Amino acid sequence: MPSSARIPVLILTGYLGAGKTTVLNRFLAASGARIGVIINDFGDVNVDAALVAGQVDEPVSVAGGCLCCISDPEQLDDAFKKLTRPDLRLDAIVIEGSGVAEPPALLRLVMDSRVPKIRFGGLIEVVDAAHIPQAEAAGWDLEQHVRAAAVVLLTKTDLVTDPGARNSLEARIQRANPHAMIIEAPHGNFDPALFVDASDDDELEFGQLALWNPGETLGESQADHDHARHHHVHHQSVTVEHEGPVDPVALSEFALDPPETVYRVKAIVDVVTASGARRFAVHSVAGYVTVDAMARAQEEPAASSLVAIGLELDHADLQARLEAFCLPSTTPPASASQLRRLTRFRT
């Protein structure tokens, strides 16, 4: 990723036994990206850290119990500072929350972080589809835990033989969080490219944004891949390259409220202002938007690149919508209020 880019932080939550560690290991092995991990350690022996050892680039354990209950939030920021060192060249950071962590509180800790080199990358709730009654009998609250999720990964769906039970579960999730993307992930299988990009280079050449995807090569054995592809859909993407600026208002509205099948939007765009063209990196994860200013040579011609990533995309519709943001190079400068519609997401 670009050295100036902020590192996305993904939050992985789910009740004990739901399959978080299996999902995490799958993600680490299959993403093709450099991943840092922050793991809740409830005991003297960090079992989860042992399971991911050898796959993770830089593990960090946060002591003190549940992340959302730590007495000093600075502790989490200390972990972020360690993992955002430029020499690590991480593509993403994953927080594996404890089985009792409340997702909204975890999300708030990340959103309120004072570490400038990170951005929120999405909250993923892991739900064991086969053992919902047992989890709820033990005090777990489905609605509360999926309410803050950008994605709900349903594990052990191969054990659910009653279609009615599966439909009922999905209906409950959708009622609690209509914006959550529900993905089946039996055996922890899913497409990591939906969540994170892998880049081998320190600097991403402008115009190569469309290549900033690991694609469908998931780094798994052929047998695993043959099994997995029958249970989940690979990510899809729609890309628009434009030799000119974009409309900051239209782009900000799209990023804030993307189509329900779009999980991520990423863009490097130029906006014409009264003082000249300005370049921004825009990221949207399930409607959570971040914007960063990028360096740009004033004599450089305006150019923009936009990508929408999700599942079962309407390619023609998305292509048309992304192209509608594109303006001719001769477009009048955006007003200060129009520019603020986009830059308000800078933090």
Score class of each variant (00 low, 15 high):
Ala5Trp: 02
Ser61Ile: 08
Val262Arg: 00
Val45Thr: 14
Ser252Glu: 12
Phe206Cys: 06
Arg229Ala: 08
Ala297His: 13
Arg85Glu: 15
Val100Met: 14
Leu318Asp: 03
Leu76Gln: 00
Ala316Ser: 12
Ser71Ala: 14
Asp257Gly: 05
Ala150Arg: 02
Leu142Ile: 09
Leu251Gln: 07
Gln222His: 09
Gly310Asp: 07
His131Ala: 14
Ala210Ser: 13
Val52Arg: 01
Ala49Thr: 04
Pro258Phe: 06
Ala130Thr: 04
Thr347His: 14
Val272Asp: 10
Leu251Asn: 05
Ala316Tyr: 04
Val127Met: 02
Thr330Ser: 15
Ala137Cys: 07
Thr157Glu: 06
Val289Ser: 03
Arg341Gln: 13
Leu10Glu: 00
Leu209Gly: 13
Val272Ala: 10
Leu342Thr: 03
Thr331Leu: 06
Ser98Tyr: 00
His225Phe: 13
Arg175Ser: 14
Ala303His: 11
Gln134Glu: 15
Gly43Ser: 15
Ser304Phe: 05
Tyr263Val: 08
Ile118His: 03
Ala92Thr: 07
Glu312Trp: 06
Ser252Trp: 09
Ile93Gln: 05
Ser199Phe: 10
Asn167Cys: 08
Asn40His: 05
Ile268Glu: 07
Asp162Gln: 09
Gly14Asn: 01
Thr330Glu: 15
Gln236Glu: 15
Asp72Ile: 01
Leu318Cys: 07
Asp226Glu: 15
Arg229Val: 13
Arg321Ile: 06
